[in-house]
Amino acid sequence: MKGLNKTRTEVPEILVLEILSKLPVKSLTRFRCVCKFWSSSFQTPLFINKHHLNNLSKNNLNLLLQRCHGPNGEIHYFSQLSTEKGQNFMVKQNIHLPICEDYSTDPIVHGPCNGILCFDAEFKIGLWNPSTRQFKIFPKSSIERPPSADSTSFECLGFGYDSLTDDYKVIRFVSNSFEYEFDGMSFYSHTIVQVDLYSLKSNSWKELPDPGVGAWYAFTFNNYINGFYYWPATEASGHVILSFDMVNERFSTLPLPEFDGGLAQNYLELVDFKGSLGAIVYPREGTLKSVHVWVMSGSWTKQHSFESVPGVERPLGFWENGKVFLESSDHELVLFDPSTRELQNLGVDAYPKKMQIIVYVETLVPLNGRSELEELIMRRSSSWRPVK
């Protein structure tokens, strides 16, 4: 129109980045091609941290379900569940990871830690960022094993973040066993334990002193909490909790909560409970499971109890508004609301006792690895299941 003054408003770059930091990773991946400044800004620690904190403050949660099928539960994959209202946690897509194939033991997933997951599949360990779809396979450890050891096995593992050096670390216990023969039979006489520590920043391994405490596998829940990783463990005096400080790289121990029946009659799972170390205790036997949640705050206190929940096999993880994901006796995923005692069947099944719920927020943390396509990771429709 004649006489109309056209003006162009310039938005300050700092405000543009503030707006962009509130967007999902999928959008930011597309916007990298807009200009070099945006592309480089998305890779700075400041923007990555801001983006992650925005997701945390908005409680933008994502759900992965590790599951398996096959006659013996040997076919492992992941299902991305919808968290949108009204979609009842329906399966959006299924994700197949080749690292989970062809192993004599089940692959174990640790985390998330700042949106990153760690895979432990026998002799291969790697990190996965499901938001950016990057995968990183670790190099083989260069730490020397005792030359006379008859067998070496890789035991439990921990994964966490070193906030001082902005580094992600993986700690692994390695058992070296020695045999002797008696009356024509072979026995293991003793075991030497080594502790390996991997740094993502240096992409290398180093050896740490053995803490002298026997840690157990712990993988149903996320055991990384505010700079520490925790394992149930055994020492000479009995059962304890072993912790590892990711910054100082030191071990220490804590007592277990005191509960009726002890570990002989109950399972114990360590968990991140609202930023504090928690312990979930539930019985090994019975069709009516009572679930007790303990929280460490200087000492152990019982925080919650869900008494006599029918048709439940085991707890899998916490959800919003105090709700809890459970595996039912029929080995299906259900959501339990303790306030109403309502059990909601979500219509997702899996092989018995092998489901794992992973709740994470999106992150842009780079892994300096390869893309999912390069690692032959496949994302397929919700109707797809791997066939052996």
Rank of each mutant, 00 (worst) to 15 (best):
H190M: 03
P209Q: 12
K302H: 07
T234N: 14
A215T: 02
N203P: 01
F31Y: 12
D183N: 13
I19S: 07
V309M: 14
R32D: 08
S199G: 03
F219Y: 14
V334P: 02
F259M: 04
R284I: 00
L346Y: 01
E10A: 11
E269A: 11
L254H: 10
D349T: 15
F182K: 15
L46D: 12
E307V: 12
S177H: 02
M246S: 10
N223V: 14
Y161C: 00
V34G: 14
V240Y: 03
R133F: 11
A236Q: 09
N55E: 06
V174Y: 03
E372G: 08
L288P: 04
N176R: 01
V34C: 09
Y161G: 01
S57R: 10
F244G: 06
F259I: 07
T287F: 13
N248E: 15
P112T: 14
P366T: 06
I108C: 11
D349P: 08
D245S: 04
F228M: 05
S21A: 15
I377K: 00
I116V: 06
F154P: 05
P255G: 09
W319I: 01
Q43P: 03
L56D: 08
S151H: 07
P147S: 05
K323T: 10
R67Y: 00
S151E: 13
W38I: 07
G3H: 10
Q265Y: 07
L343V: 15
G238H: 14
N129L: 09
